[in-house]
Every structure is written in structure tokens, then in C-alpha cells.
Amino acid sequence: MGRRQRLYMWLMLFPAFFYLVTAFGLILFEMVTISLLYGPPGAEVYPSLGNYAEMLASPEFWAALRRTTVFVVIGTPLQLLVGLGLALLVHREFRLRGMVRAIFMLPIAIPSVVTAVIISLLFSVPYGHVNDLLMGRLGWFPRLVSAPVNWYASEPLALGLALLGKTWRDMPISMLILLAGLGSISEEQYEAARTMGATSWQQFKYITVPQLVPAMASVLVLRSIEAWKEFIFPYILAPSFPVLGTLIDHAYHVAKRPSYAAALALVLVVLIAVTTGVLNRILRFLETHLVKA
């Protein structure tokens, strides 16, 4: 490549990367500087670790951290299972396969806000379809509760609804990654296994699962990042039980404390970076050991 050629290429690359790198550089820089501002309006001290000290002493922060962790720990494997189920369903030839796949992609096309509205309609209080069903008002279903369930007043139920929304909307993503993984397993291996008399379950256990490990690892890493980042579903469906994302919004819009919000934001970023790194390590370790076995 000649020098002029090289220069030309850098010029083509420059605008996009300049935009992204400066923006994120500035974002990170400002996040740090704003978070070091502490004190009553007009009399702030800089630099101060006051926001962080206050955060560590605040029960709300620890409660939010605990809820977010539960959200990640339950949500990530759940999304893997749902995605795997969908991927296995459409990973075979059948008539209308294209149409079924297109329908499976629908949830991701719809705005999250709309998904949250659908859930709040289905689970409305006191009278909605789910409450009607649980109260045995439809006739064919047994009466399970005597009074309408108030989904939004209970922490596990409200966060469960948020998780339901998140899982429902994002299942096509996990499905696509796993489908790509399934597609890379050669048909010959299954044929060989069948000639040797392997059952479907054995084929799944000894051929599909081991070779799907890299795709599953991708899903776990990407979905856990998204679960840490989650804001919109807990914001709409579990407003009384903030996770870290909603806590940031609360600090910014309700308490009107941008500097405290920035400190929370930075903690969240660091948390994601660290846990993703650790998860990556663990998965890589498991991968090498599973391949050996």
C-alpha cells in the first residue's frame, strides 16, 4: 500500500472514529469530574469523594445493587434457555420456516416502551386478564387467589414483570446467536452418530451442546451486560423497587443531584467492566475444560 493510499484510508476512517472516541472520552471524563463535585448547590467542593462516601453509606444503593445482581443472575441464564428453545425450534427444515422465523423476530422490532405497556395492560390491577385468570373468573381455570394480586406492590413480582418484559423483548437476539452456532455444526457428525445408534437425546448431549458452548458463552456475556444496563422495564414496571439504572434516574430527575447520579453511573460502568471481564475468564476456562472432556 502506497503512502497516499494509506493516508486516504485514514481519512476515510477518521471522522467516524474521531466522533466515537472523542464522544466516549468526553463522556468518561465528564462522568468522573461531575461525580467529584459534592455539596449543596452553589457551595460545591471539588474534588471530593463525598458522593461516593454517601453512596456507600446509603441503604438505597445497596438495595439497588442487590436487586440488579438478582436481575442479572436470574435473567442471564433465563435468556439463554429461552433463546436456546427458540433456536432449536426453528433450526430444521419445515414449510413456513421463513415465516415462523420472521414472527420470532417480532419482539425485537417493537420499542421497549411498548412492550412495557403491553405487560402493564395484561397485568393491570385490580382487573386485568391475568388477575381475571388467577381469580378463576374465566370459568375453565381454577381459582388460585381470592383477591386481585397487586403486582406492583411486591418486590419479587414487580421485578419479575420487568424481567418478563426484558426476556420477551430480547429473545430474538439470543436466538440468532445460537442459530448461528447451530448452523456451524456439521450434519455429518449427526449422521455418524445415528449410524452408531445414538438416540436424539445423546446426539443433543454429546454433539450439539459441546459445540454450542462458544455461542452460549457469547449469549451469556452479552445478555449479562444488557441485564446490568437495564433501565426501561424496571423504570416502568417496578418504580418502587429501583435497580441501579432507575436509581441513577431518580438521583438526576427527582433528587436533582447530577453529581450523585454521575457517581452512580460511574460505579455501574466499572461494575459492568469488571463482571464482564470475570465472566469472560470463567467461560474461557470452562470452554477449554469442556473441549478436553
Binding site: I225, W228, P258, A262, A265, L268, V269, A273
Partner: peptide
């Protein structure tokens, strides 16, 4: 890796 809810503040 950056959550939107975090980047939005700065």
C-alpha cells in the same frame, strides 16, 4: 459496555 442510562448523564 457503557449503559445508556450512565452515558446520558454527562
Amino acid at each position: 459496555l457503557f449503559p445508556d442510562i450512565a452515558t446520558v448523564i454527562p
